[in-house]
Structures are given as C-alpha cells and as structure tokens.
Design a protein around this nucleic acid. Structure first.
Lengths: 203, 203
DNA sequence: ACATAACTGTACCGGACGGTAAAGCAAGTG
DNA sequence: CACTTGCTTTACCGTCCGGTACAGTTATGT
C-alpha cells in the first residue's frame, strides 16, 4: 500500500491529507466545509488539492471511500458474528463506540456529511443515502440467511429487522452529535436488543 | 390569532411566508437555504424579509417555533396517552407519518435544518440539539410517572427508555430522507415497540 | 388635501465561495 | 551544466453569499 509517487515528489502525504479532510467534512458537513477550512487542515494550497484530488466533490468521494474502508470496518466485522443476535449486538455496541470516538468528531460522517444540502449539491445527499441503504441491504441478507438456518424464527422479516437496526444506529449518530455519552448510547443499544426476545411475536 | 398589522399594511401574510420559509429550510437545511431560495419561495424581497423577520437566523428561529407548535404537536399529544406503551406507540407511529408527509419534505426539520454547519453557524446546530434533548427530557418525565404508578416495572430506567425511543424517531427521520416508505417506517416502529414486552428483564 | 408612516423594489455593499492561470522552484535526467 | 518535469505559491477569476441604503409607492390619521 501507499506507492511512492513516481515522478514529481509530492511534498505532502495524500493519505495524511485525506484524513485531515475527513475530519473537516465530518465536523462541518460537505457544504459547511469550505476550501479554506479544508486546505488549512490539510496543510496544502488549493491548487495542490485540485492536482491531487480533482475537485471538492471528488475529494469528498475519496474521503467517503476511506471512511467506509477504515471507520466502518466494525459494521462488516459485525456481520460475521455467528448468530443474528450477536450480529445485532456487535453492530449496535460498536456503533455506539464509533460515533463517540474522542479522536473524531461525534456522529457518523455518512450523516453529518450531507443529510441536507442546497439544490446545487443534491447529488451528495443522494450518494450518501444510497450508500447507507446498500449497507442495510447487506444486513438484511445476513438476517435472511439466519432465517434460512433456523437461527431466527421463520416468520421474521429480515429486511424489517435490518431496517430497525440501521434506524437505531442512525439515531445513535444523531444523539452523539448532541453530546450524549457513549455509556448512554450503549444503554440504548442494550434496550434495542430486547426486541430479539420477542421476535416470533411481531405483529 | 393572526392579529392585523396596526400601521403599515404588509403586502404579504407573514404566516404564509413563514410556512414557505419552513419548507425551504426543511429541504435544504439552514446553510443550504440561500436568501434567494427563501425570498423566491416566500414571494417577497430581501428587505421585506429583514423588515418582517430580522435576519436569516431570526427567521429560522421563528420557523422552528412554528414547526414545534404545528408539526410536532403529535409528540405532545402522544405523551397524554394513558399508558407508557401507548405513549411510545403513538409517538413512533405518528413520527413515521410526520416524516413522510407528502406535502412536506421528507424527514424532520430539527435534523435536516442543521445537523452539521460550518463554524460560522455552529449555534444553529447547538440550538437544535438542545431542543431535541429537551423533548427527550419531557418523555423521560412521562415514563418516570409511569414507573411511579406501576405502569412500568419498578426497575425500568425512564431516561434510557426515552432516549431509546427518541433515537428511533431520529433514525426514522434519517431513513425517510433516503426515500424509505411510510409503511416500512411503521413496520420498524412496531418492531421497536417489542422492547416493552421484555422491559423488566433489561440487562 | 396633505403630511406621515410603513412597506416595497432596485440596486448595491464587502466578503467569501469554488476554482484556476501563470510564475517560481526543487528534484531527476542528459 | 542546461533541461525537463511537476508540484507549489501567489494572485486572481466570476459568482453568489448575507445584508442594506435609498428612493418609490401606498394606505392611513388629521
């Protein structure tokens, strides 16, 4: 990983710069993050940013890729738990941790980044929404397998269950941005997991 | 209600204009809504806006007040249900309806409005977060009374229960902005209500 | 009728926005 | 050593931002 630049020696590490940009987008959102905010945090000038990343929007997309690969790894790991309950428990607890990292802005970049934008940047909002729903579909697949193997009751709606859990993670993220503590979020996660005790009785 | 302006006869209805502004803020967020967007939707010019509402931020605050009074009435109504379960059921189901009104932008203005802003408008984010937590505190009070009267098990944590439910409503709002249907949100609400069946067994 | 008070429209303010052209400068190659 | 290469710096582009000065308009109080 991290190939050395072949020709012109870039005076900055693109990965370090990308991480700095991630923090700015995370804290201020796509529109709230100005090029001045970004270049200051990244320690480079605007032309360098454009040479290395293309545009503000392309930079944002690369930031989101890095975010999905690094900061959302816990979600993919959760899905490899042996049982559906453990999948959900890992997802909710690790999400409570992820949205309250002391070394990162509170909340989730996928939501903070652009839950609402002006007309000019509507594509950013759509892009993020689509990514979140794609993650939910993966979770639904995992629960569908759990139903097939008898791990979950036969009358369980895997998509509804996945949707419920994603809703909780998103609510946790919103709550985190309001300053709610990690412990309080984990208590809400434990509460949410109680639904598993009553699953076969869903109306 | 709707006192007639005493002196100069205003050429527009402030309430109609405020509602138009609400929709713009709701859809685009505080920063994403430009004065041009606002005045166009309101059908007035910038000086009229400033004469009637003071500034963009004061306009937003008045919009939020109207939103809390009108569009969030269902939340106050839910708390008057006779039992804690019915409070929660009304809150979650009516919230699913509220965030998917066909005549309004999807989601919740309190979240869409400014879940993240640039450094210049950080006060907007804080203001909204504080309002949401105030609503949660009211809900916690309602559940505390339910514990006192024996409606909820004695070992129930009313604040944690209120927090869980608010998290679900916030997640529903986020999901709604991604285009998820009202029916799907109501299914997730029913799922969330299953926690009430296992309340006295919370870990 | 007349002055007054209030709102409206136009046109503009300084500044910040996202983005870029052109010159300066450091390293790799002959 | 000149020469190329390519990033970096500086300075700037047109546009839009939130906000306002000023003059025009319109209904009221007397």
């Amino acid at each position: 990983m991290h190939v050395a630049p072949e020709r012109g020696r870039r005076a900055f590490d693109p990965l370090v710069a990308l991480n700095a940009a991630k923090e700015v987008f995370w804290r201020y959102g796509y529109e709230g993050a100005s090029l001045t905010d970004l270049t200051t945090a990244m320690g480079i000038n605007k032309p360098s940013l454009y040479a290395a990343f293309g545009s503000k929007q392309e930079l944002f997309e690369k930031v989101i890729q890095a975010y999905a690969a690094d900061d959302m790894a816990y979600a993919r790991a959760a899905m490899e738990q042996p049982t559906a309950y453990e999948v959900a428990a890992a997802l909710l607890h690790d999400n409570a941790i992820a949205v309250t990292r002391p070394d990162c802005p509170p909340g989730c970049l996928s939501i903070q980044g652009g839950i609402s934008t002006g007309p000019a940047n509507a594509s950013v909002t759509e892009f993020l929404a689509t990514s979140r729903l794609a993650g939910e579909a993966l979770l639904a697949d995992r629960f569908r397998r759990a139903v097939d193997t008898g791990d979950l009751p036969r009358d369980t709606d895997p998509a509804a269950l996945a949707r419920f859990l994603m809703i909780v993670t998103e609510g946790q993220a919103i709550h985190a941005t309001a300053g709610v503590s990690r412990a309080d979020l984990q208590a809400s996660a434990s509460l949410a997991l109680l639904v598993f005790r009553s699953l076969s009785g869903a109306s």
